[in-house]
Design a binder for these strands. Structure first.
Length: 271
DNA sequence: AAGAATCGCAACCGCGTACTG
DNA sequence: GCAGTACGCGGTTGCGATTCT
C-alpha cells in the first residue's frame, strides 16, 4: 500500500527550531491542547509538518520534562529496563518520569553503552562479552552493580523505589495483551528470559481486544503459575492503571529493588 | 592558534500499526 | 475486508560544541 507523505514537504521549515516557532507551538498547545498533529501546524501558524511539531513538543517543549544529567539511579534503572525490554525506548521512558524516549535513547548510545562495554558487558545482550553464547542459555550472571545487592538500602535506592512505585505516570487506560510472565527472575541479578503465554482461562472470557497488559516478575520468590495466572477478581473491577496491585497486598515483589509485583506494559509487543 | 577528531543531542526518516469510512 | 490516513516508535543523520593534536 502506498503511503502519502505526512505533509507537503515544500514550503516547510526544516532543521533547528527558532525561538519564535517554539513560542507559537507552546502557546497553541497551551490554549488548545495536544490534538491532531497534522492540522496543528497550520492552525498554529507554523511552517512545519505535524510530525516535527509533535517531536519538538514531546522531546523538548513539554513542561513536565526533567532537564539535566541522569542520576545514578536513573542509569541503573535504564540498564535494567533495557535488559528486560531491549530497545523499547518508549516503554523505558514510561518508567522514568520527565525523561523522553529520545533522550534515553541518546543517553544509552552515548554513555551507557560505553559504560557497559568498559565493564566487559555487551550492551545489546547484557552478557559478558567473552561469554560463550548458546541459543538457550539463560542470562543470570550479569550484575549491574552491587548497589542493589545490599540488604541495607541507600537513600538513593529508596528514592529509586519511590519513583518506580509511582511510575510517575498518569493514570490511564491501557491495552490488555496476553500475559507475559518472567519466570525464575532472581533480583538483583535479573533473569532476562521472558516467557510469553496465551491468555489464561479466566481472561479468555474477555473478548479481545484485551484492555490491559501485565508483566509479572519476582525476586527469588516463588512465582508460581498461581501467582502469575490471572487473578480471580471480577475483570471489570480490576484497575489497569499503573498503580495496579502495588500496595494492595502484603506480598510484594522487589523488582528492580522496588516493592511491586506487577508492571503494566502498555504495549508489550508480541512479535 | 588552528585544524582535525570526537562527542552529544536535536531532528529527520521510514516503517508498523491502529483507526476510520 | 480493504484502502487510506494519522500517529508513534526506533534507527539514523546532521551539525554545533568540545576536546585533542
Amino acid at each position: 500500500m502506498g503511503r502519502s507523505p505526512c505533509c507537503e514537504k515544500e514550503h516547510m521549515n526544516k532543521g533547528a527550531w527558532t525561538k519564535e516557532e517554539d513560542e507559537r507551538l507552546v502557546s497553541y498547545i497551551k490554549s488548545h491542547g495536544e490534538g491532531c498533529w497534522r492540522s496543528l501546524p497550520r492552525a498554529a501558524g507554523l511552517l512545519r509538518c505535524g510530525k516535527s511539531c509533535r517531536l519538538r513538543w514531546i522531546n523538548y517543549l513539554r513542561p513536565d520534562l526533567k532537564r539535566g544529567n541522569f542520576t545514578h539511579d536513573e542509569d541503573e534503572l535504564i540498564i535494567k529496563l533495557h535488559s528486560l525490554l531491549g530497545n523499547k525506548w518508549s516503554l523505558i521512558a514510561a518508567r522514568l518520569p520527565g525523561r523522553t524516549d529520545n533522550e534515553i535513547k541518546n543517553y544509552w548510545n552515548t554513555h551507557i553503552k560505553r559504560k557497559l562495554l568498559s565493564k566487559g558487558i555487551d550492551p545489546s545482550t547484557h552478557r559478558a562479552i567473552n561469554e560463550a553464547k548458546t541459543e538457550d542459555q539463560i542470562v543470570k550472571d550479569v550484575s549491574f552493580g552491587s548497589k542493589f545487592e545490599n540488604t541495607e538500602k541507600s537513600v538513593d535506592q529508596k528514592q529509586s523505589k519511590k519513583n518506580l512505585n509511582g511510575f510517575g505516570c498518569k493514570e490511564e487506560t491501557v491495552e490488555y495483551y496476553p500475559v507475559v510472565v518472567v519466570e525464575e527472575a532472581i533480583c538483583p541479578d535479573l533473569n532476562l528470559e521472558l516467557k510469553i503465554s496465551p491468555p489464561c482461562q479466566n481472561h479468555r472470557e474477555r473478548t479481545p481486544p484485551y484492555t490491559a497488559s501485565r508483566f509479572y516478575m519476582e525476586n527469588g520468590m516463588e512465582c508460581s503459575s498461581e501467582t502469575a495466572k490471572c487473578q480471580t477478581e471480577d475483570s471489570s473491577s480490576i484497575s489497569y492503571s499503573s498503580s495496579i496491585d502495588v500496595s494492595s497486598s502484603g506480598v510484594g515483589y522487589d523488582f528492580l529493588g522496588l516493592k511491586t509485583r506487577v508492571l503494566d506494559f502498555r504495549s508489550m509487543e508480541m512479535k
